[in-house]
Design a protein around this nucleic acid. Structure first.
Lengths: 343, 343
DNA sequence: CTGTTAGCGCCTTCAC
DNA sequence: GTGAAGGCGCTAACAG
């Protein structure tokens, strides 16, 4: 099946508008952009003509002239990663409000492809770039001679001369324990994911610090393996065998926490009465469907994306010195039934 | 903390290169683009100069001249939707290979915002647009006087003059049942999501058709409610009370299936021995961590995104009549332990 | 108030 | 083989 006609061509140019309105190009431009002094009557004539011809200014031409495109590149290492999407949303949202459009580039974890995309973005004269990584481990910098400002989101740059925004995982780890303590728990264990991830290490450090601050000790060692539900199930079984006394389990992710909940249920332990469980990431699909619903830490990723966009927006086009260094953004506790029983 | 210097300026123009190489602008252009007849010696001189100056052609200028930007818009109704992301990935991937860059626009379900973004994309002179919806229900067309080709992905356009690509949910529904039958099951029930979704209705129709074709009948009515794990748990409990004889449950989503699995486990029914369970969407986080792992239907969304990109690519810039109508893309069965016991 | 002129950076005829 | 000139669509000085 075929539709008869190919789409209409792109609409008229400013020249056409000027001719129809019977004025010069420059006057038409001024009239449309509300600039300069133009008689009200001629302005109306121009606007009418533009309306009639369906005129829309060609941004390419504008950008070429102005040297600014109101365009940014979003260079991600991996779109699959669950953490990238909210950041993307936040950034797109913040930019959209400022009439800035976003080029999306997915390097899929490949360095060559990243370089390739970077070049393409620069050839298109983007005004700035956000680099979004999939882990919080520091990543190589794009370098200091990129001709536009760059902000690193989630995965910070290894180079302190760059500006990076990343969630404060250590604070998140502390928050896990502080909340459990405030729920009256004292015999706390920690099951988390892949020890090769900075996120796992940082959260574990936070857990230790908060325990130490309260004069407590972790029950058992930190249990590292991977970020899966399956590991959560297995780890919980091992833990309860060796440390049946635990009254709270701080998990490194919501997936792990889901597995932990399953095992506790299998073993007949009541949550939260016998054992409180807390997850991390606040992945709603997992947390709100768990039995009971899962308390968790939210990294405010959408907010992080928005912040990154705002920072970029502020320095784009200016030549002032740019802020540098890694900023650790606050995370947030979301309390549900797995730590505090519903009445 | 501040980094000392603002980034380097954008690199040299072709003019600079020409000057350094001691040739005219035109010659430099030819040399760099491998066009026209240029002496080997001068070509080398030009390329050296370009290299030295870090010259990269300004795509804006090129696009302005050529009337084509090698740029497309990806207009999504909702980035949160889990189905949009794989499509996005597929499209970005396919375009990336063709040197086309993607503008990402999220209308967040708002019509006004969609119009706004559409206008912005056209002002930037994109060569084409992909509209990605979050449900398979038909959506309003952007209209026939958009000056560039448009392809609708996932959510088809209401207007048959548009080209739409959407997964074949009816075939998916049939596939659910056919697989269960091939596993020797005959007493089949169907628990699915929100009846307001075309996806729920289409899959249910497929389920009915396949049962009828095999001379079987559904056990109980189709159970509609919402797409949650919680509903899966509740529905399964109701179902087993009224129809304890069922030996297979076809679910409308993986979330629902997860809930069903939970209830079966609570009631002491063995999966797949007593009751086989099959999900829909093949959301790996859910399917591969289920106990047992969940058989499911995969809609090949990444492939769908790639197809959409390819179609657009083919007609972009040409004026030939464009294909129209809604195409239903094949889905795929992924077998795991919830329908066939592991040996 | 309005129109003319000069580009933004690049590519493509056309003469030489 | 090379260069000069025109123009893609628009805006920012300037004159008139």
């Amino acid at each position: 099946m075929h539709s008869g006609q190919p789409a209409a061509p792109y609409p008229a140019t400013l020249n056409d508008v000027a001719k129809v309105a019977g004025v010069s190009l420059a006057t038409a431009s001024k009239a449309i952009n509300g600039r300069g002094d133009v008689a009200e009557s001629t302005r109306k004539r121009v606007l009418d003509a533009a309306e009639r011809l369906g005129f829309t200014p060609n941004q390419l031409a504008r950008s070429l002239l102005a040297g600014r495109t109101h365009t940014v590149g979003l260079l991600t290492s991996d779109l699959e990663g669950r953490f990238v999407i909210p950041i993307l949303m936040g950034a797109e949202d913040a930019f959209g409000a400022g009439q800035v459009n976003v080029f999306l580039c997915d390097a899929r974890g490949d360095n060559i492809r990243e370089q390739h995309h970077l070049k393409a973005l620069l050839n298109r004269r983007v005004d700035g770039i956000i680099v979004v990584g999939r882990q919080t481990d520091p990543r190589p910098s794009l370098g200091q001679n990129v001709p536009v400002p760059v902000v690193y989101a989630y995965a910070p740059s290894e180079d302190p001369a760059d500006l990076s925004l990343t969630p404060d995982n250590e604070a998140g780890g502390r928050m896990l324990v502080e909340h459990l303590i405030s729920c009256g728990r004292t015999r706390i264990a920690h099951i988390t994911g892949d020890p090769a991830y900075a996120a796992a290490q940082d959260r574990a450090r936070g857990v230790h610090d908060a325990l130490a601050a309260a004069g407590l000790e972790l029950h058992g060692e930190v249990m590292f393996s991977d970020w899966s539900e399956r590991w959560g199930r297995d780890a919980a079984a091992m833990l309860l065998e060796q440390h049946p006394e635990v009254d709270a389990i701080a998990c490194g992710s919501d997936q792990i926490a889901r597995g932990v909940l399953d095992t506790l249920r299998d073993l007949g332990r009541q949550v939260p009465e016998d054992v409180a469980v807390i997850g991390y990431d606040n992945w709603e699909v997992l947390t709100t469907n768990a039995r009971p619903e899962l308390t968790s830490i939210d990294a405010n990723l959408q907010q992080l994306g928005r912040e990154a966009a705002r920072h970029l927006f502020k320095v784009m086009g200016t030549s002032e010195p740019r802020p540098a260094g890694t900023r650790y953004l606050p995370v947030r506790l979301v309390i549900r039934g797995s730590t505090i029983a519903r009445r």
